[in-house]
């Protein structure tokens, strides 16, 4: 039985986040209007706006993770698994971050069959990959590739970049978040912890989802992969 205070706190948290998301929506829209009005030659202004856009997505990602992790701890994070077209998911992820990619001069492309489908919670997986993508945009030099394949009944979604790759300690224990918290760099690795939890929540029969960090990927940089049964 969920205790009353917990239930109250949960309601408060959920409705606050809902409210914050509505604010973010308005913020996002104002931003888009401003962005449309600014001349592309005015590089300084474009850069400033791109930073604003980056911060909006970061706040949104944090909100998703915050609520998600709180719910996980309360064992009340619902998993809404349905079958989805993977290409459409990846395409939307690129659209979401178009401005950010433009700012960093990064080209992001998709390597995925248009008819490929997978079973997963669309909202959660979008959140996970989006977080990885925003990060990758920071560390990539010129190129990011979104790759999706299906092998042995696992759907594999990967984000590969041409950066310097992940630190060795992260690769060894990608889900162990607390050890990686570094207040000086602002990196909490919360995103990877969340990604790991979300991956393992996806189950089918005996098979359980997982995530993997590798270096020396197809673009010679880091690769984040999530495997979903």
């Amino acid at each position: 039985m969920v205790k009353k205070e917990d239930a109250d706190f949960y309601m408060l948290l959920a409705s606050s986040i809902h409210d914050m998301k509505n604010s973010l929506s308005l913020l996002m829209h104002s931003f888009e209007e401003m962005y449309a009005d600014v001349s592309r030659e005015n590089t300084k202004e474009v850069e400033r706006l791109a930073l604003l856009n980056y911060e909006i997505s970061r706040v949104n990602n944090d909100l998703i993770q915050l609520l998600g992790i709180y719910r996980l701890s309360q064992e009340r994070l619902p998993l809404n698994v349905d079958e989805h077209f993977v290409y459409e998911l990846l395409e939307e992820l690129i659209l979401k971050n178009e401005i950010l990619f433009n700012l960093h001069g990064i080209h992001c492309n998709i390597n995925c069959d248009e008819d490929l489908t997978g079973h997963f919670d669309l909202n959660l997986i979008t959140g996970v990959i989006n977080n990885v993508l925003v990060n990758a945009a920071r560390y990539a030099k010129k190129e990011i590739q979104l790759i999706a394949t299906k092998d042995k009944n696992y759907l594999c979604l990967s984000v590969a970049d041409d950066g310097n790759g992940f630190p060795i300690n992260m690769i060894a224990d990608p889900g162990g978040h607390m050890k990686n918290i570094n207040f000086h760099t602002g990196s909490t690795s919360l995103g990877l912890y969340f990604a790991d939890k979300i991956a393992t929540m996806h189950k089918e029969g005996e098979k359980v989802g997982y995530m993997l960090l590798e270096n020396n990927g197809p673009l010679k940089g880091g690769v984040f992969s999530i495997y979903l049964p």
């Binding site: 986040i17 809902h18 998301k21 509505n22 929506s25 888009e32 809404n80 979401k96 178009e98 909202n123």
Partner: peptide, 30 residues
Amino acid sequence: TTAETSQEMVLSAIEHKPDGYLAKPFAFNL
């Protein structure tokens, strides 16, 4: 448009389902 999706949304009868959900906040191009 939604702040989050629930099981009730995912599993409602097809006739009463919207054609798609857009998680907030979403950009115009999306």
